[in-house]
């Protein structure tokens, strides 16, 4: 339940304070759950996929540089 100063600042009804507690309970529950999350175990398929996508970006970065150089010249 809220303290007196906050109650005076916001001038909420009991219903509204109840809703605030409800909203916060849901928020804090999600945050608590988030803190329990660790690293996701990646299957070999997913690892290959992520590496493939990373190499794709690196290759494309080189292509963009080549394209820019071609255009400038």
């Amino acid at each position: 339940m809220a303290d007196q100063n906050l109650r005076q600042d916001w001038e909420w009804s009991e219903l509204e304070w109840g809703l605030a507690d409800e909203a916060l309970a849901e928020h804090y529950e999600s945050v608590r759950h988030l803190e329990t999350l660790g690293l996701k175990p990646l299957s070999s398929g997913l690892t290959v996929l992520i590496w493939g996508l990373r190499l794709y970006v690196l290759f494309m970065a080189v292509v963009v540089i080549v394209n820019v150089v071609q255009t400038v010249h």
Binding site: W12, L19, A20, A23, L24, H27
Partner: peptide, 12 residues
């Protein structure tokens, strides 16, 4: 959190 709670009360 207070500001967010204020917004959430309006939504609820």
């Amino acid at each position: 959190d207070r500001h967010r709670a204020h917004d959430r009360v309006q939504v609820l």
